[in-house]
Computed example of a mutant assay.
Amino acid sequence: MTIPPENRVASPATHCSAAYAGLPFHPPAALEAAPGALLAGAIAVSAFLAHAVPGMTALSPMILAIVLGMAFHNFIGTPAIAKPGITFSLRRLLRIAIVLLGFQLTVGQVLDVGGRGLIIVAASLTATFLFTVWLGRLLKVDRKLTQLIAAGTSICGASAIIATNTVTEAHDEDVAYAVACVTVFGSVAMFAYPLLPRLLHLDPHAYGLWSGASIHEIAQVVAASFQNGQRAGEFGTIVKLARVMLLAPVVFALSIMQRLAAGRSAARTARPPLPWFVLGFTAVVALNSAMRIPPEVSKEIALVTTFLLSVALAAMGLETDVSKIRAKGLRPAVLGAISFLFIASFSLALIKLV
């Protein structure tokens, strides 16, 4: 039986929405997001605990978080009640984390790399990104997945992938695939690079530059570069941080390209939003450069940043189906492998030439 509109009783949710309609903060929405955010947070905590286990320290909590999230989703199942919190983690918390990432960088650190070092880093990043996009089209890999692999390989691994995805808006399975690529090939570099300095006639400075300019994750750069001494490790870390600095212009450029493409397409009426959180990231870098933040405070901020990024990746894992990843085949993995070999050889060639 159909109830006439005039006799219908408004639901409690409707009354709540009306009651809070004029407020800038919507408490019922926050309560609705709590289960999913807490679940993603619990998985992130588990990732940190797993990271502390001997033999697991080479894998960042972010990578472990997406793996644990995927395991939960595919073996147990993500409850429907968690959906609003997962969306909140993938949007709000992720953007906050990217802004906070700026506290790990200063303009002085970038300048310490030197003019020639910055040229090598910027040229390697740009060439690798463009080469990967071109090769992805050649291999007929999905455009969005190609952009994620290009960002992860050329900039800074998982952090760059999830930051780039705020613009590309790829499926969660694409993000998981791209993270898997940078994890596997970055781990290969982490173990292979320390065997090569003598063979390639690289002094500690050159080896640190090569490691920082070509290995995917910050943790992988630290693990590989310090194998060749303190000087190589410190310089490799600084170079890698300078490379992370380029995350902002790359994501912003991709956003502009998406907006232009949307403007030319008659089929799309809405344009992708500009990533204003990237401007926040840049502003925080400037703030961190202008004022001295105590080391213990910086350490705590870095920990919070990594945790928030881990929560976002855990949320992504909670929406990722392994069967859909398998369905993508091996071509994206081939793309990731060739892209890794390209940035390693291209940056090495520049170091030898410059």
Rank of each mutant, 00 (worst) to 15 (best):
K352L: 05
F191S: 04
L209M: 15
P28E: 13
L335C: 06
I325T: 14
A261T: 13
V304T: 01
A47L: 08
I98L: 10
S345Y: 03
I351H: 01
L118T: 05
R92G: 01
S298P: 01
T269I: 12
Q104H: 13
L309A: 10
C156E: 04
V45Y: 03
V284H: 00
C156F: 04
A170W: 00
A44G: 08
V179K: 08
H171I: 00
I63C: 11
P204G: 14
L64R: 08
A123D: 02
I81S: 11
F131R: 01
G85I: 04
Q109R: 09
I96V: 14
I215G: 12
P294G: 02
A30F: 15
L313N: 06
V110P: 04
P5H: 05
L125R: 06
S339M: 00
L93M: 06
A327R: 15
L94E: 09
S225D: 03
G212C: 14
P84I: 06
N165L: 03
V67Y: 10
T78H: 12
A50D: 07
V285R: 05
S298K: 06
T306S: 14
L274W: 14
K328C: 14
H205K: 14
N288G: 04
R95L: 08
I66H: 10
P273D: 12
T183G: 13
L93D: 03
M257L: 05
M56S: 06
A312S: 15
M190E: 09
V110C: 05
V182F: 07
A122Q: 12
L330I: 15
G329Y: 15
L148G: 07
S298F: 00
F103I: 10
I86M: 11
T282F: 03
L335I: 07
T164V: 04
I43K: 00
A224C: 11
L93R: 02
Q104S: 15
A290C: 00
V179Y: 08
V222M: 14
D172A: 02
V121E: 08
L90V: 02
A286T: 02
R264L: 15
E296M: 10
L350R: 05
A176Y: 03
S323C: 12
V322N: 11
G41F: 09
L279I: 12
A283K: 00
A262K: 08
G114P: 05
P12F: 05
A10M: 08
L130G: 01
L309E: 10
A150W: 13
G157R: 12
A50W: 10
I43Q: 01
T305G: 06
S17V: 06
E217A: 13
E173G: 01
